[in-house]
Design a protein around this nucleic acid. Sequence first.
RNA 1: GGACCUGUGGUGCAGCUCGGAGUGCACGCCGCCCUGUCAAGGCGGAGGUCGCGGGUUCAAAUCCCGUCAGGUCCGCCA
Length: 566
Amino acid sequence: MCGSVDSTMVGERLSVCGWVAKRREHGEHLAFLDLRDHSGIVQAVVDGSVDVRSEYVLRVTGTVSLRPEGTLNDRLATGDVELTDCQVEILSTAEPVPFQIDERTEVDEQVRLKYRYLDVRRDRMQRNLRLRARVNSTLRRAMERQGFCEVETPLLWAPTPEGAREFVVPSRLHPGEFYVLPQSPQIAKQLLMVGGFDRYFQIARCLRDEDLRADRQFEFTQLDVEASFVGQEDIFAFVSEAVLDAAEVATDQRPGPIATMTWAHALDRFGTDKPDLRFDMELHDLSTHFAATAVKAFAAATVKALRVRGGGEFTRSRLDALTDQAKALGAKGLAWFRVTPDGLDSPLARFLSAEETSVVRSVDDAQVGDLVLIVADEYALACKVLGALRLTIGAPPVSEGPHRYVWITEFPLFEGVDDDGNLVSAHHPFTMPHLDDLDLIDTDPLRVRSQSYDLVLNGWELGSGSVRIHRADIQSRIFTALGISDEEAQSRFGFLLGAFKYGAPPHAGFAFGIDRLVAILAGEDNIREVIAFPKTQSGTDLMTSAPKDITERQRRDLRLKFVPKV
RNA sequence: GGACCUGUGGUGCAGCUCGGAGUGCACGCCGCCCUGUCAAGGCGGAGGUCGCGGGUUCAAAUCCCGUCAGGUCCGCCA
């Protein structure tokens, strides 16, 4: 390979294949070719008459030689040698490429995606995709070492109208009926538990027809895990082992044990269930100090504050931008206070009582030159808004700083109520409630904690899991709470409930997004950078032009008719 | 469904506030020169629907409206 030619091979006659990265001509009798493959670049010395251009594919047969004194290139791994007396065989010619296959200029992503096969020829994508391959194999080995068995599950599954929107696949043999592509192998893996595969895993493709984001594609890959006769702590141990192995492979450093934090703490201290722990800036609750305030802006259930070190320097326009962000997230406004030697500098300062001034003045040990931001609102909204401002102000780029993993535990079982007044599962309907909270299901359901958990890395949710319900009586109480009748439960999940009648072991599991893990390990802030052929934000593929029309014949077979939007 | 940012030779940018001839820079491409370069160098050259449509104006890359594409985010993602 190009990159592995070195001085130990001097004198050897060898053939290397690769692409012409660069040609440097020096007249009739001398030219240098940089021959590139994924391993690196090697220089071949050829006659000036050799007519090759950038990105031609060559087989160069030459003698490995030490470069003459004074011509070594220490910026090239193979810079002390070169190939001489070369025979050049052109395996393929190439037209000028739409962008250069090097790292010198950032190319617009639209162009990169259209010519993705050229983009992946570049070093960045080579590195990222090869890192991903190593992470995959590391995860697989870690799971096998821990006694897990890899089982594949179907891509063509039955519709379960619950949760994420599914991709639908029309059936040819059963016109008018449909398969769906799985949002995750959730139910399949629980059936495998019933089937006696007490330790299952799979590197599984999941598909969700929801809007795309920097960290979300229609199709993504999860390390999917489920085990019987185990609890939350066991799952943490299994998954931590795999994740830390992968991190070690990627960074040559094994992170320490992964800490845990309850959902309630994460929300309270960081304003989110996926805290970025690379920096401190915690939220502080001032509600009790403002319980009887005369300041209208602070008359709310919750008053939360964030101290910004050095934020006294923020310009008025930056404060306005933060205020706009707060409002966009639903806050009525954003109160800011500059801490100065003379007290608080703020439009609201003169309305505060002496005691309130002193509370604000000393939030989180604020010093002169700091800024204090305050949001007063319902608890959840105040947390969400200040949590977002915390990230805007303090979060380093994804590619910077340490990797801070954390387990978030004790999520609420229900996250709210839908339009019909029924409770909605926070995770999924098979999540085991916290056993201490069973009695709250009927009396105060929103306070029921669940035995579910997330794994978070640098503010990104890597994945989630839970202890599952294996007892019919508890499952039935949950369905009742969710407003799912017996009949409905039977028609939606009948095969699972049926399976549970024949000896369901207690089980628990987890699944995390490999795309997201690899992106962060690669220092990328976007999972498209670790996916060979990703979709755009509007779900198109700029290379293949998918989605596209199908043929009349295909439509006929499927008995599909397109109804235009009116 | 919504907010914001971006769109100028093949690529990356500048030009846009404050309208005045498609102006400039770097890379690439083509031709010629060059026997030790490696971001090679020198000389010359080609290459444009300023995303698209409309409007304002004597005049639009520039201002206004609409639209398309890409991105970031909100909603959405059990």
